[in-house]
């Protein structure tokens, strides 16, 4: 194996639990995936599936009063992050691994100018002078295509539009040329036309800087148009992992299939008579994560479920090259087409 083929981020059997008054919530319950250098990995799932907690775990940003990583390993560039001391973690965050969030307004400091916030990050991590930091800030604003960058440096977050703020967040996140950028629902709060602009920008910068992106979203459309590989999560577990083309062409997990049939399609007309087809529903609700789930977490809502599914947790198995699925009934599901 060549050096280049070593993934930049390796997550193995990650388990992050939260202590609540209702009991222990297994928010992330044994999740494994790799992120290759310069790759875009999509993590998709519905609310409460643990996708955001996975991201926070990688950055070790789980609030210690309520939650902790109880097991597994996160290796970044060969270095174990689980158990790494906070000072070292701080030097990695925003530098080698950085993150952008859904709501840029809450992640930007309202009383500091945009330029200061970018320069601060650069000065802290790269140890350059403040002057150089500000130069870098201007360069970054130009890179994320904010017009009139020199003037914008002195503006405050509230003076910018939502799309512009997300561009600033990206500028901060990429200012130290990180190896991995974790983007948690980066476009969910934005309008459609702005979303398209931001997604395009992220992909373009990825090419330019060689940053790997972990894109976390609930939107299969966003995944289909941006990711190279996809991890589908359900109730804190990975149920399927595949290349984006393989996943959308032939989803193998009943949950993934259910999701794809449940979304109204922009690109497919109802039928010739103009009658609206029924969307396929996934019956039931997401399981309650405080109760241990011995078998497959989707078993209660799955049409293929057997007694084994309810009793024994299915391992993630490769069914096609690069296409893994955690399901006992893969053969029957594949037949059902």
């Amino acid at each position: 194996m060549s050096v280049d083929a070593v993934p930049v981020l390796q997550v193995r059997d990650l388990r992050t639990y939260f202590n609540t008054l209702d009991g222990v919530v297994r928010a992330v319950d044994g999740v494994t995936f790799d992120v290759g250098r310069g790759e875009t990995l999509g993590i998709v799932g519905e609310s409460g599936c643990g996708k955001s907690v996975t991201a926070l775990s990688i950055l070790r940003l789980i609030p210690p009063e309520t939650g902790r990583i109880v097991g597994g390993s996160i290796r970044f560039d060969g270095r174990e992050l689980v158990g790494l001391d906070e000072a070292e973690m701080k030097s990695l965050r925003g530098h080698r691994i950085s993150m952008i969030f859904q709501e840029p307004m809450t992640s930007l400091n309202p009383v500091l100018t945009v330029g200061t916030q970018i320069a601060e990050n650069v000065v802290r991590h790269l140890g350059v002078s403040w002057r150089q930091g500000l130069d870098r800030a201007r360069e970054m604003l130009e890179l994320v295509r904010i017009a009139d960058a020199a003037r914008r440096l002195d503006e405050y977050p509230h003076q910018l539009s939502g799309g512009m703020r997300q561009r600033v967040m990206i500028a901060i996140a990429l200012s130290c040329e990180p190896r991995v950028l974790i983007a948690d629902e980066p476009t969910t709060a934005l309008d459609v036309t702005i979303q398209a602009q931001i997604l395009d920008l992220m992909l373009e910068l990825k090419e330019k800087l060689g940053t790997a992106i972990v894109l976390i979203t609930h939107d299969l459309g966003v995944i289909a148009e941006t990711a190279e590989r996809v991890v589908v999560m359900y109730a804190g577990r990975k149920v399927e992992e595949a290349s984006v083309s393989s996943l959308f062409a032939q989803p193998m997990h009943p949950y993934t299939r259910g999701l794809m049939r449940a979304i109204p399609r922009l690109d497919i007309e109802a039928d010739t008579a103009g009658r609206r087809p029924r969307l396929q529903e996934i019956p039931g609700l997401v399981p309650i994560l405080t109760r241990p789930i011995p078998g497959c977490a989707f078993a209660d809502r799955c049409g293929f479920a057997t007694d084994r599914c309810r009793a024994e947790r299915p391992p993630s198995v490769e069914v096609r090259p690069g296409h893994e699925v955690a399901c006992w009934e893969t053969a029957r599901v594949a037949e059902a087409a």
Partner: peptide, 26 residues
């Protein structure tokens, strides 16, 4: 046209189409 071309769809094949993304903010 701008809205339609900016909207995403769960179909990776659509990625290759020429997207006409309008620039600027509302």
């Amino acid at each position: 046209e701008a809205l339609l071309s900016a909207a995403t769809a769960p179909d990776p094949a659509r990625r290759k189409r020429r997207r006409r993304i309008v620039q600027g903010d509302v």
